[in-house]
Design a protein around this nucleic acid. Structure first.
Length: 644
DNA sequence: ACTAAGACTTGGAACAATCTTA
DNA sequence: TAAGATTGTTCCAAGTCTTAGT
């Protein structure tokens, strides 16, 4: 489970890889594209700019390009960056003072199929009414997808499709199996090929049009600062794709109109204009919330929101606060652990259940596990909603005592399997909890997330079940980094160590992914490369040997330098081989593990930033551009000494 | 106390852009 | 230079937790 505690030493890497260089140059162009904001903002932020903003770390980016350009770039940044983290923050529920935006972008209207693309029912061609056809295209587009093989999906789709059919259509189309969507499917595939095959100019045109939309609708002005919106496009209509065995999969997600949308903006701001001939459902001015627009989605009846980008103040501040709560937990976690250990022995069943559940949440980073409405969603569980059937108890397994085996579907129907030895008291309690119960009964029948969180709140202000996940994730990263990083390693090896630490967290949080389709092949490629390298090494070794012989025979300067040269070549090759092997290992270890979620949501960025600063690893190696924007607060404030 | 609604975070897959390779 | 691989971005579903309503 845990990564090797001995970091793999890999050779020194002198050259910076091409990829990152190219990326860098692109980024600087991007900076220039950024919108220029008002002048009054500029002076306010300039004064906040610190003197020695960046001492090291940028050393490797060398190049020092042309001084002129650098100056210009820095100026832009000064003007743009809102260092909100240096401002005082209030906790009064007011999220903003002023908020102005242009409203959401709607999905493009339906474009009817050309006449040569036909739909057939029972072998006979059939022209569908526009709305019927639109819904048919939703299905046709998904013909190659696994979804269309599922009964629930097909049943739900057909039911909803019939609802939009004309009376006449309804009478004819009575069996989904007799529907032929082939040409529709082909048509959209062809369209997508066409798009890919477009000329450079055409692509550029489209790109520019998109950028223009983003420029207009992708930003808002909040408290005098221009900030990116996260999702300013309304979700287009389509077929609902639930995860796992979702009972509602295939249902028609209807088109959202202005009449469905509530706009939220400042009282004195300009109200966004609804599309021609339309009116907003409502315009309100609620500064206790962070969303700009919302609507109700028709599948689950949930509210959907348009909110700010992760790099915004509103999101960043919340993120920062989240990690501060987790750090606070660090200070009292010993006490809390002692506390639930005590509770294992409680006379009250509900207390014991609470204690054991908390033990799992703490030890295994399980999610809280709210109840869900049956039949509305896929059958998934978290800690508090575990059922008897999700665990197996073994007095002894693999020569370990008191093993609990978990097997259940968690969030997004991702399977969680784990067999862990637990303390005897926990084990005995679990036996007690399962006594006289059916497999489908709740394991913790006296517990739910509300009860658990209420208790946690008493233990520490702001403490909830999910804080343990954040806490243990960040803690694991910090510990693994401390353990794995060798200051004498070259950057590449340090990064491998970082990835391994990150991986340990992803494993803890059960962040899985489907093995990439190209995995086997790309692994194969790496292996052949390694084999090739080994062969060249053999050759190089022979060369060294020969040179040695020559040198022994005649200790001339020429032979000596030749030997040295051959040795150098061999050394280089061996370094390259190691690097390849390390990369292969890294990839293999990572094939079914997703690092993104933990990096973005669970790991205090200050840990990573501090690590980079301490070990002279450029931050770009760890965070890409978007991530750097999101974590700007951490990059700016964390010093090498920061410890979680 | 209980439920439902609301607000916000977390999650993997799909899609798009870019890079590498044959 | 097109195809294939890799990386970055968008999408939107599915959680958590709080608040409002009864």
């Amino acid at each position: 489970m845990k990564p090797d505690s001995s970091p793999i030493k890999s050779p020194k890497v002198k050259k910076e890889d091409k990829a990152s260089k190219k990326r860098k140059s692109l980024e600087s162009e991007d900076e220039d594209f950024k919108p220029v904001s008002k002048a009054k903002k500029a002076k306010k932020e300039v004064k906040k700019e610190k003197k020695g903003s960046d001492k090291k770390g940028s050393a490797s980016s060398g190049t020092e390009s042309s001084p002129k350009k650098r100056v210009k770039k820095e100026k832009e940044e000064e003007r743009e960056v809102w260092k909100w983290w240096e401002e005082e923050k209030k906790d009064d529920g007011v999220k903003w003072k002023t908020l102005e935006h242009k409203g959401p972008v709607f999905a493009p209207p339906y474009e009817p199929l050309p006449d040569n693309v036909k739909f057939y029912y029972d072998g006979k061609q059939m022209k569908l009414a526009e709305e019927t056809e639109e819904v048919a295209t939703f299905y046709g587009k998904m013909l190659d997808h696994d979804y269309t093989t599922k009964d629930a999906f097909n049943t739900n789709f057909f039911r909803d499709w019939k609802k939009v059919m004309t009376k006449a259509e309804k009478e004819v189309i009575t069996d989904l199996k007799k529907c032929n969507f082939k040409e529709i499917c082909e048509y959209f595939k062809m369209k997508s090929e066409e798009r890919k095959a477009m000329s450079k100019d055409q692509k550029k045109e489209i790109k520019e049009a998109n950028e223009a939309i983003t420029k207009e609708y992708g930003f808002c002005i909040i408290d005098g600062h221009k900030e990116k919106i996260g999702n300013f496009r309304i979700e287009p209509p389509g077929l609902f794709r639930g995860r796992g065995e979702h009972p509602k999969q295939g249902m028609l997600k209807r088109r959202v109109q202005a009449e469905d949308i509530i706009i939220n903006c400042g009282k004195d701001s300009e109200i966004p204009e609804a599309p021609k001939g339309h009116k907003w459902k409502e315009v309100r001015h609620d500064n206790q919330v962070t969303w700009l627009a919302s609507w109700n989605e028709n599948i689950q009846g949930q509210t959907k929101y348009i909110m700010l980008n992760a790099a915004s103040k509103l999101k960043g501040e919340k993120d920062w606060a989240k990690y501060e709560v987790a750090r606070k937990l660090h200070k009292c976690v010993d006490k809390i652990r002692a506390n639930y250990h005590e509770d294992f022995k409680s006379k009250e069943m509900r207390i014991r259940q609470r204690a054991v559940a908390l033990y799992f949440i703490d030890k295994l980073a399980l999610r809280a596990g709210n109840e869900k409405e049956e039949g509305e969603t896929a059958d998934t569980v978290g800690c508090c909603s575990l059922r008897v059937e999700h665990t197996k108890l073994y007095e002894e397994k693999d020569s370990k005592p008191y093993v609990v085996e978990f097997d259940f579907l968690g969030k997004d129907s991702i399977r969680y399997t784990n067999a862990i030895p637990v303390e005897k008291r926990v084990f005995k309690n679990l036996e007690l909890f399962t006594q006289n119960k059916q497999p489908s009964d709740d394991l913790f029948d006296r517990l739910n997330t509300t009860i658990l969180n209420k208790h946690l709140h008493d233990l520490m202000e702001g403490l909830t079940a999910k804080v343990f996940r954040t806490y243990n994730a960040s803690r694991t990263l910090q510990e693994q980094l401390n353990l794995l990083t060798d200051p004498d390693d070259p950057v590449a090896s340090k990064i491998l160590s970082y990835n391994r630490a990150n991986r340990a967290v992803a494993v803890l949080c059960n962040h899985q992914r489907a093995v990439p389709k190209t995995f086997a092949k790309s692994m194969q490629n790496m292996m052949t490369k390694i084999e090739d390298k080994k062969k060249t090494i053999q050759e190089a070794k022979r060369n060294v040997k020969d040179a040695k012989v020559d040198y022994k025979q005649s200790k001339s300067e020429k032979n000596r330098s030749n030997l040295d040269r051959k040795k150098k070549i061999l050394e280089r090759l061996e370094e390259q081989l190691q690097k390849l092997e390390v990369a292969a290992t890294d990839r293999d270890e990572n094939k079914d593990i997703a690092l993104g979620t933990s990096k973005l949501n669970y790991l205090d960025p200050r840990i990573s930033v501090a690590w980079c600063k301490k070990f002279d690893v450029p931050i770009e190696k760890i965070y890409n551009k978007t991530q750097r924007e999101k974590f700007r607060w951490a990059i700016d404030m964390a010093t090498a000494e920061f410890q979680f």
